[in-house]
Amino acid sequence: MASLTHSTPHRMRRAQPMKLLTSGAGIVFVLYVLLYAIYASLQPSALSSSTFTNLVNNSVPLAIAAAGETLVVLSRGFDLSVAGVISLTNVLMAVYPQEGPFGALVSLAICLAVGGIVGAVNGWLVAILRLQAIAATLATMIVCQGLALVILDAPGGMVADWVSYELTDRLFGVLPISGLFVLAVVLAWLVFKRTNLGLGLYAVGADEQAASLSGISVIKVRFAAFVGAGMIYGLAGFMLSAQTATGNPNSGTPFLMLAFAAVALGGTSLSGGRGGLIGSILGAATLMLLQKVLFSGGVSSFYTGIFQGVVLVLAIVFGSAFARLTGRRTTA
């Protein structure tokens, strides 16, 4: 469970429940469980496998997008291209559907490649040309949105049946298949975290100067963060297409703000160096669950944004207050 604390793997050696709880991911996990309890009390069917699968399917695109964003945020960057990549891959899926399981694999490869290319452009602009991340990725986002409009100028198209049926189904009647994709991302992260590059991500995010004086190649780390993030956005676009079964050139737009909200809610510091990908996934799940809870509580969907924002602020305030109480140093 070391992954739930914010950085070092050695913490596995001595489990510290207090530390787990005060980490961002711990807080958002507790929050999720509480919300789910409320959800279950409002809607008894919440505990059924089909409702849960539905919830997971709804949450997966945002969870994966937030996971990608986390890579860049950890290295003290911003990546707005998340919205562009999701829109672009979504319209590609809807306009050029590939049937059957093999077709799905081809589609997935295309989505990852598109995301990876956009990420490489971002990495080139930010890590090598040293442009401001926010400006550079704003530009790539706009370009991707524009490309999406060229490919599909209005909502429409059909995602391949195999993708939209199989990927929203359950394995053995219980396990949501889309959840397995999130699991795959988490596993990949746990491996990546234990590479020199993964540690470099935390190092560069905390102090670029010190990282480079410690012998870390800042350019390489930044570039890798953007490419990895781009590919994960591609996966998010793939999963969104499975979910909606259709194409929309603006489908990525809502993900921009929510991805950052999920990252912050999950305890990753927007100033870099602290946090983790699992927190962001839980953060995304919490934001989506909140929608369901409000809906089943009879609150108009117009209020959703207000509640999401308030929960975000409360989680961050609570997190830093709790951290102060237990004597852990808060983020710089």
């Binding site: 914010h6 070092t8 020199n196 540690l199 935390y202 010190a210 004086l213 410690s214 012998g215 160096g273």
Partner: peptide, 15 residues
């Protein structure tokens, strides 16, 4: 030139 968020051992052994 040390990284505050990493452990002592990690700092010693970087990169």
């Amino acid at each position: 030139s040390l990284l505050p968020n990493l452990s002592v051992a990690e700092n010693l052994l970087l990169p």
